[in-house]
């Protein structure tokens, strides 16, 4: 599940990842994808070549939420600032907000979630991705949490 710890080197196109749009970019170059976490249980998979980040929620978050019944996504083209409310998730147990983990422009949203909110449970970090953001301040990624630091926020 948490196979990429904090910073991992992926070579494309030798490996295809279903669902995640940014990882399909830059087919011939070596791209560094950094996976960082937030205390709000979100993940940013940051591609340093394109300066884009794919936002998703963690497996831990989806299992705590239970069956997701509704996902509200941000609008494509909107400018978001780190910490802004950009969407919402409602499950059979809870209603929660989604916050922008980084600042930038929303390039793409996962429209499948409109009709298949359950993707968030089945594949939170892959097919259930939320949106792709073009970072206006790529250095924001550095201040996000590593997997270990993220785990410490709820394991005590």
């Amino acid at each position: 599940m948490f196979r990429q710890a904090t910073r991992s080197r992926l070579s494309f196109p030798s490996r295809t990842v279903r669902g995640l749009p940014s990882l399909q970019a830059a087919p011939l170059s070596r791209t560094i994808v950094t996976k960082k976490y937030t205390v709000e249980h979100e993940i940013v998979q940051f591609d340093d070549e394109t300066h884009t980040g794919v936002v998703s929620i963690t497996d831990h978050a989806q299992s705590s939420l239970g069956d997701v019944v509704f996902v509200e996504l941000p609008t494509v083209g909107s400018q978001v600032t780190q910490g802004d409310q950009i969407g919402a998730v409602e499950s059979v147990k809870a209603a929660s907000d989604i916050y922008a983990p980084v600042s930038g422009e929303v390039l793409e949203v996962n429209e499948r979630l409109n009709t298949e909110p359950g993707l968030l449970n089945r594949s939170p970090e892959d097919e259930g991705w939320l949106c792709r953001i073009k970072l206006s301040t790529p250095s924001e990624v550095d201040s996000l949490l590593t997997l270990e630091a993220y785990k410490e926020t709820f394991e005590s």
């Binding site: 978050a61 705590s64 499950s91 147990k93 809870a94 209603a95 926020t153 709820f154």
Partner: peptide
Amino acid sequence: FIIATCSAYKIVNN
């Protein structure tokens, strides 16, 4: 009868 959880994302305070 439905169980509700508060503060779902903040699992610590769940």
